[in-house]
Design a protein around this nucleic acid. Structure first.
Lengths: 352, 352
DNA sequence: TTGTACGCGTTATCAC
DNA sequence: GTGATAACGCGTACAA
């Protein structure tokens, strides 16, 4: 016992290793390894197994996962790449992914790109260096060098929320097309005809699908948006939403009936802009978002939006990753999770 | 060239290793190691160094961090333990921590406890198995078995947001005592005297300090809260805030002038409860929160609260961790970051 | 300045 | 059923 302890402190920081518990139980350390790892080849007599287990317990043995990874080539770690964890869409996804993977012994490494593609590439390389077993990418562009890089490196990748142009990447996304169609139909049902939109860069599948959803529905009703009713934000933030809205409001003598925003944060900016201009919502103008992030039901006015089931998306992504880790040659599939319209006060029937 | 490639594919997934680039550049692999790692012992002739570097580049060599960790006993990874990443206080902290540590080559492992202390202990053990260099704990209790366990394991720990009873843990916290004193003084200045509070479990330093801040300020003004003006939540959520508020509102014939809530989420619940009861805020009753989470400036009514500089807290925590990793025997210190009162409509002067 | 040789803690594959 | 032993890829003291 004293011997074991002494040996332990002889190594770096008093860490117990297989050899220590082997010495203390009087068996070879390969035997200990077999006992402690379920699913090992040779069977062990119950007596020895029990003995070894208690000794390991007593000594407080913690397996060294790093050393194991060295042999097995599997680190049981996976990366998650997001632009900015403060964006409220990401945490529920992280939680759901972790809930699925953690019981399987995985750990999640988070990488924040800060919207910088160079940073993003560095993160990928860093994660590759760390031999992650797989990577979730929530920043996917339609043509994405990051995705290409992962394929080069042979790292299994699951795209979350967004999809690539070719759809050759395993992905779990929200049905933005359907969601935005439903929303737009509701806007029309409410009597609005002079509609403005705030869109995001069309190299993102989400932004593109949402725009298509709007345009398709409007076209069905014989409406074509003039250029001055279309604004773009570079990033989907409240600040840019505010700027874009101000531009829209001054683009024509007439105010639009409604502004359909690409997401909730942009809609928040739109509401701020309208307030600054002294406009009543929904009296003077209706506004809608997308995402149903926390507290948009509490703001003034409560925001009409489309709810994405982020928990479902994260869960499906986690399961998809497990499937791909299990059978590496699984064909890519895109899983679409339904969206749901959430009607609140910011969108109301036009009274004129 | 063909030889190198063949060798590479002989190992697992075509991964290039030191030996491969050594073979391709005609030097020994220890030389390659020295070239590629700045701060290695022996100096290398510039010619060789340059040559090796280009060869490594061409082959797309990615160092195997796992193997390196095996030697160096340092994984350059650190854990971050939170209850639930969806709580909006955590993401800014994660971001700031990552911003500080990432340039130093660290990666952040996130662990969600789901408010379950058993899960929490498993996470610690798992992280210990992965040889994390340090752990940030944002779930600290005044007496915390997790913290004790980390000390046993010899893992450097930095407590974030909260502190232990003895203050023997390196920690970065918000000055909740000062923040709540300032807020409470403002409540009194506004003319409120019949005050109710919603508190959280007193085994958390934040909850205790906030309560002390309230009580101390009230006592200074000769006010003692009767029991029926005090409610508790088990978790600081909107749902529990709503329940607690309903209990408070029915505890006496008279309504309180104001409800001071332990944090914003609880205050959100309080606002909902008041709405359900048909009470006007701040006309009938004033409400305050703590944290200044996103969008509480946009809700109806905008919430008076105290702003914690989560970015500053995260940054300081990251730097404190680096300091402790650099000099392991650094004495524990508690860094307090100032709080700032944010006055909004939900708290108004009493008109009677 | 560069090459040699060993060890980090595990797992896998031999023998026995 | 158990023991011995060879990798895994890299870092580094030491030798040359």
């Amino acid at each position: 016992m004293c011997a074991a302890k002494k040996h332990a402190t002889a190594t770096r920081p008093g860490r117990i290793k297989l050899a220590d518990v082997a010495a203390a139980s009087g068996v070879h350390y390969s035997t200990v390894s077999r006992v402690l790892r379920p699913g090992s080849k040779g069977r062990i007599s119950d007596v020895v197994a029990e003995h070894v287990r208690t000794v390991a317990q007593e000594l407080g043995y913690q397996p060294n996962t790093i050393a194991a990874s060295m042999r097995t080539k599997s680190t049981r770690s996976i990366g998650l790449i997001v632009h900015d964890m403060s964006d409220p869409v990401y945490p529920p996804i992280l939680n759901a992914i972790e809930a699925v993977l953690s019981p399987e012994g995985f750990v999640v490494l988070v990488g924040n790109t800060g919207y910088d593609i160079e940073v993003e590439m560095n993160i990928i390389n860093k994660m590759a260096s760390r031999l992650v077993d797989g990577i979730f990418v929530a920043t996917t562009r339609l043509e994405d060098p990051i995705v290409a890089r992962c394929q080069d490196l042979g790292i299994p990748l699951v795209s979350v929320l967004r999809q690539t142009q070719t759809e050759e990447t395993p992905a779990v996304v929200n049905d933005c097309l359907g969601g935005m169609q439903t929303l737009t139909r509701q806007v029309l049902t409410s009597g609005h005809r002079d509609i403005a939109v705030i869109l995001a860069p069309q190299n993102l599948s989400t932004a593109r699908e949402r725009w298509w959803g709007i345009r398709h529905t409007l076209t069905e009703h014989g409406i074509v948006l003039p250029d001055h009713r279309i604004a773009f934000v570079e990033r989907m933030s409240a600040d840019e939403g505010l700027e874009a809205t101000k531009a829209l409001l001054t683009a024509d003598d007439q105010l639009p009936d409604a502004i359909i925003c690409v997401n909730d944060l942009v809609a928040i900016g739109a509401i701020r802009a309208c307030r600054e201009e002294g406009l009543k919502i929904p009296g003077d103008i209706s506004i809608s978002g997308y995402n149903d992030i926390p507290l948009v039901d509490m703001i003034d006015p409560p925001l009409t939006t489309v709810r994405m089931r982020l928990d479902k998306i994260g869960k499906a992504a986690g399961e998809l990753m497990l499937a791909h880790l299990g059978s590496p040659k699984l064909p890519a599939q895109t899983i679409r999770i339904d969206a749901e319209l959430v009607l609140r006060k910011s969108l109301q029937h036009l009274k004129r």
